[in-house]
Design a protein around this nucleic acid. Sequence first.
DNA 1: GCTGGCACTCGGGATCGCAGAGTGCCAGAC
DNA 2: GTCTGGCACTCTGCGATCCCGAGTGCCAGC
Lengths: 338, 338
Amino acid sequence: MLSERRLQVLRAIVQDYVGTEEPVGSKALTERHNLGVSPATVRNDMAALEDEGYIAQPHTSAGRIPTDKGYRLFVDKLAGVKPMSAPERRAIQNFLDGAVDLDDVVARTVRLLAQLTRQVAVVQYPSLTRSTVRHVELLALAPARLMLVLITDTGRVEQRMVDCPAPFGESSLADLRARLNSRVAGRRFSDVPRLVEDLPEAFEAEDRGTVSAVLSTLMETLVEENEERLVIGGTANLTRFGHDFPLMIRPVLEALEEHVVLLKLMGEAGDSGMTVRIGHENAYEGLNSTSVVSVGYGSGGEALAKLGVVGPTRMDYPGTMGAVRAVARYVGQILAES
Amino acid sequence: MLSERRLQVLRAIVQDYVGTEEPVGSKALTERHNLGVSPATVRNDMAALEDEGYIAQPHTSAGRIPTDKGYRLFVDKLAGVKPMSAPERRAIQNFLDGAVDLDDVVARTVRLLAQLTRQVAVVQYPSLTRSTVRHVELLALAPARLMLVLITDTGRVEQRMVDCPAPFGESSLADLRARLNSRVAGRRFSDVPRLVEDLPEAFEAEDRGTVSAVLSTLMETLVEENEERLVIGGTANLTRFGHDFPLMIRPVLEALEEHVVLLKLMGEAGDSGMTVRIGHENAYEGLNSTSVVSVGYGSGGEALAKLGVVGPTRMDYPGTMGAVRAVARYVGQILAES
DNA sequence: GCTGGCACTCGGGATCGCAGAGTGCCAGAC
DNA sequence: GTCTGGCACTCTGCGATCCCGAGTGCCAGC
C-alpha cells in the first residue's frame, strides 16, 4: 500500500502533466505544490511509484509521466467528479431547451459536450429496445403494400415497408391498427413480442398472412440493433491531443467512423454510473492512447442510451466527468418532458 | 495564349506533383515525360508559366508546384474525367444494391465514395423541397396534440408535433387526413403551399384553427432548410493530406462539422454537371487549401441533392471526378428504383 | 527557337557542442 | 527510520555550422 504522501505525489504528477503536457520532475513538483518535503524525498517517492508501475520515464533522466495504471488510480481514488458551476449548468439547460425534436436534442447534445470538454463527443440515439411505444401507424401505399411507422416515447420514428401476401382491405387495416395500438401503446419494446403473438388469430384466414407479415416487420424493427445510431462531434479537438497528435489521430479517426466499434465500447460499459476506460483498457486498438468517459442517460430512472467523450489519456478527468454527467442529466430531463 | 507545349509542361507538372508530393524540376520532367525538348527549354517554359501565375516556387531554387490557377487550367482544359473501369462500376453497383432503406443508401454512398477516392466524402440527403410527397399522416397523440408525419418519395420521413388551439375530433382528423393526401400526394413539395391554401375553408369554424396550425407546421417542415442533412465519412483520409497535414487538418475538420457551411458550399455549385472548387475558390477560409468536387444526384433527370468529396488541392482530379460522377449516377438509379 | 554549359542559390540532413533539467545515490541530520 | 542537501552523471533539445545536391537563370552558339 502506498503511503498518503506518495498518493499526493501521484496526484500532483497527474495534475501537472495534464496541465503542461510535459514530463514533470521532482523540483517542479515541490515548487508548484506545497508538499512540505524536499525534491530529494519526492525523488524517492517517484522511484517507488515507478516500481509499482504508476508512472514512467519517457527517457532516462527526464521527468515522469503517469501510466494508464497511474491514471486509473487517480480516477478511482484521488480525484472526484468536479461539479459544473451554476452558470455552466444554466448554459447547458438553456442550450438544450431550445431543441425542437429528437434529432435536434441529439445534435445539440453533441455540440455541447464537445464544447464543454473540448474533446470528441459521442452520443447514442435513445435505444429502441428500451423505449416504450407511443404509437404504431399503418398506411396503405398500394393494395398489397403497407408502410409501418413506429413512434417511440422519445420521439424517434422508424418506418418500414411491408409487402402483403394478399390484398388487405381498408377495414382490416383500421382494425389491425386499432388492435395493435391498444395492445402496445405505452408498453416497452421488449414486451411487444409477447403482447402481439396471438394477434393473427383474431383475423379472418385470408388476412392472417398480412398480419403476420406486419408483425414480423415490427419485430425486425425492434430487434434491429444495427439501427443504433451514433452522432459524433468535435473531431477538430483531436488536434489538441498533444505534440504527437499526427501519429495518434489517424487510428482514432478510423475508430470514430466505425460506429459498430464505438457502440460495442459504450455498450460494454456498465449500465449505471459513469465508466472511464483508460488507454489500453479499451479493447479496440485504435483507441489505446485515448480514454473514453461514458455514462447512460434516459428519461426515467433507467438508461436509454449512452453518451460520452473520447480524449487523450492525458485529460482532465474530474472536469470531463463532471461535464459528461451534467449533460447526461439534462438530456434525460429534456427527454422526459417531451 | 500559352503554346501547346507549355500546356503539356503544365500538365506534366501537375501529374508529377500529384504523384510525388514534391516540387518538380525541369530535369525530372524531361526524364519522366518525353516532351522531346531539353531541360533548358523546359526551364524557359516554366519561367513563362510562372509569370502567368500557373505555377510557383516554394523557395528560390526549388522545383515548381502548381498554383490554384494552374490546377484550374488543368481541370478545365488539360484533363478529362477518367471513367471508372468495368470492375469498379460493378463493385459500386453491388455495394449500393445491398441497401435496405434511405439511411442505408446514404451511409453506403459515403463509405463508398471515401474508399474510392481515398478522400473525405460528403453526401447530402435528398432535399425535401425538390422531392414529391408520398403520404401525409396525422395522428392524435392527445386530444389537442397531433403528430404530423411526412413521407417522401425518396423514403425520407419527417415528423413534427402540432399543438391544436382546440380539441380536434377523430372524424375531423380523418377528414383532414384524406383531404390533405388527395391534394398533395404525388406532388412536388414546392407546389404544396399553393395546393392547400384554401383547405381551412372546407372545415367548420371551430376546426379551422387546428387545420391552419397543421398546415403551417407542414410548411415549416417543407421550408426548413436547416433540416438539410449531411453525412460525412472518410475523415481518416485527411491524414494523407501531405507533410503539412498537421496544420491543415484542424480548419478542415472544423469546416466539416459546420454542416451549414458545407451545405452552402455545395448549394452554390451549379445545379447540373460537376463542380470543382479549387483552393481559394472556396469561399470558406478553412477550406482554402482544399478542393471540393461535387455533383448533383437524383432519381429523375433533376438533382435532388449533392454529393462530393473534399481533398487536398493536390489531388487526382480526373480520377476523383470519375468516381464522384459514377457514384452519383448509381445512387440516382437506386433512388429511382425504390 | 532550342541546347549545353556554367555560376549561383538555397533547403535539408548530418555533425558537433552546450546548457538545462532531471535522476540516483550517499552521507549526514533530526 | 526518514528526510535532506550535495554531487556526479545522463540525457534531450536547441542552435550553429557545414556540405551536398537539386534546381535555377542566363548566355553564347547552333
